[in-house]
Design a protein around this nucleic acid. Structure first.
Lengths: 339, 339
DNA sequence: AACGCTAATCTAAACGTTTCGGTATTGTCA
DNA sequence: TGACAATACCGAAACGTTTAGATTAGCGTT
């Protein structure tokens, strides 16, 4: 910039004013500056600018698992609105691990991002301290966090799972195995609540033996489903608290030589783009992924622009049960024991 | 830092030396500086540091489609090795679109990333000029680019598709529909070469009418498959040049009321984690996603460390045909016409 | 006691912007 | 014609580091 100023025979303050449109500069100087810029091939140094202005126009985005199509969709959506607003996004994944999570948050904060959108892997103290002590706006994605009074956008998880459970109940299922997410995450807890609520409303006793906790990964789903399938009294249906675990569950079903839905019904949180072309065509509750991303980005943008109210906002979106053919009706009465 | 220096009664140069371990500082001053740091809660400003050192310890990563599980896996792998080396990654997606691609590259370069890993959406001039004119190291991922003599890691695409085509040929298929990727990308071209090579080696004439070009997205696969399936003489097998298009193809097959593999065989590039638990269990050629990511990250890291040879390196990894049950053998002879 | 050498510390100049306050220059109006 | 305001431009001080080179102190030699 100093070279441009010299070449155009003006001060650097004028060049800066021209570039940023901060104040009027005469036609004559505009011409000379433009000429100098294109001759020199000048490009503004964003680092120096950031140092002076204190903003990087970059936001950090931490998801819980970058390989999970749910998060991928949300990332794409967030990306779109943030880019349109002139922000770049620094992405990372905590791999559903709190230690990793702390590291990643530090990494981003250290890069001086202007704000953060995070899907917490858990509610550990370090992470809480980190987000409480930073002065940058943070919005929670997919999962809330106790003690953190900040913007968040989540699904009405209890309702979503309740809907799915009711559907299974409606088909006559009474022993519904539940592959739960980690109780260390709000999604894990809230979804379980939905299951219990639906059971309670139907007057069915909650049976802890039908619930297995995992950490939302495929391997967890496999293990959990295996335990349920090899138990003395096998459930007639399985509900998985997320998309990755249901794949593990299907693998377990296959390995046990069972057929879905003939031998066991399966339903799950989170939809797949391929769900209605491969068999069994899974019944799922689809999340409004696009909207979740848009809203999270919007909340953050409003904080960054200072157009947000002081009070934290909690946005709750709604899932949609997509019935396909992975659940079969069951004969009335208690569990049918094959002859 | 200036406050820390004042509080510890030393110069800022000494504080800097202590923090960076640049030179020895006495036990006494170390103690005082540490005390001052923790008292003040000082954290180094990475922006100022970058301004001075000219490095951000951030690398830009542009994939072609962030929703494509292939890229997601590669991203996760790159992320892992880059983070371990102390780099953050700024991720974006060009959505298989060259205009978007130019924008994204500018966005990242503007953020002063130290290097770039990109999966080009195409070989447009702007993009070439951009990467030629930047002084930052760039490595190409998944796709090469004419006229760009830089590091790249790709699959042996011709071989991969050739293997799959041979498999289909071995089952007796003679009319193999090919859902091609865009000819504007090296993957699109190289994979088609593999198909033609296999056909040629088997002494089968290449029939352009059996090939439809798409842009690697699900909708393209649907459209392309539909065209092939509604043609007067329908192919007995379909090969899709990538994972997203094969889903579209399966949708088309379903919409046409056909069964796979009974009515038509299907195989595809790129594996899915769920491929062997949902039916039809797709036969695919799996890419070594983890290795691709690792190698790309390694190439870049070596450039950043200055430990790379001057000459550009081209790494070619190999795919692996995973046979499942989406392809059926066909009766010998020409296409069987149902009575 | 003077000297040189090494190690520890400091001073001050960058890095490339933005921005505050000031100075010409011009135009307006009494 | 002189005072005043508005406009266009500039000088220089930040922003928070790193780092080359200067200074100082300590210590062994002679």
């Amino acid at each position: 910039m100093i070279d441009v100023a010299r070449s155009a025979g003006v001060s650097i303050a004028t060049v800066s004013a021209f570039i940023n449109g901060t104040s009027n500069v005469s036609a004559e100087l505009t011409r000379r500056i433009e000429a100098a810029i294109s001759e020199i091939g000048y490009e503004r140094n964003a680092i120096a600018r950031s140092l002076k202005t204190g903003a990087t126009r970059t936001v950090g985005l931490m998801v819980a698992d970058i390989r999970n199509p749910f998060f991928t969709d949300v990332v794409a959506s967030i990306q779109k609105v943030l880019n349109r607003a002139g922000y770049a996004v620094m992405l990372c994944s905590n791999e559903e691990d709190t230690a990793m999570q702390d590291e990643q948050i530090k990494l981003m904060l250290d890069r001086m991002v202007d704000g953060l959108i995070i899907a917490p892997a858990g509610e550990d103290e370090i992470m809480k301290r980190l987000v409480k002590s930073t002065r940058k706006p943070v919005v929670l994605l997919d999962r809330t966090c106790d003690e953190l009074d900040i913007d968040a956008v989540v699904l009405d998880n209890a309702q979503a799972v309740s809907d799915a459970t009711n559907y299974l109940l409606g088909l006559g299922h009474r022993r519904i195995g539940y592959l739960s997410g980690s109780s260390g995450k709000s999604t894990g807890r809230d979804r379980l609540v939905g299951y219990r609520n639906a059971l309670a409303a139907a007057g069915i006793a909650y049976e802890p033996g039908l619930v297995r906790e995992g950490n939302f990964r495929e391997a967890d789903g496999y293990r959990a489903a295996m335990e349920l399938l090899t138990a003395p009294e096998r459930p007639t249906a399985l509900f998985s608290a997320n998309n990755l675990m249901v794949i593990g569950a299907m693998r377990a079903i296959r390995d046990m030589g069972l057929e879905c839905p003939a031998d066991i019904s399966v339903a799950s949180m989170d939809d797949f783009p391929w769900a209605d072309v491969f068999s069994p065509r899974l019944t799922t509750v689809a999340q409004p992924v696009e909207a979740i991303g848009e809203q999270a980005a919007r909340l953050l943008l409003e904080r960054l622009n200072g157009t947000a109210p002081a009070a934290p906002r909690l946005l709750t979106l709604h899932g949609r049960l997509v019935v396909r053919n992975s659940c079969a009706p069951i004969a009335a009465g208690p569990v049918s024991i094959p002859a």
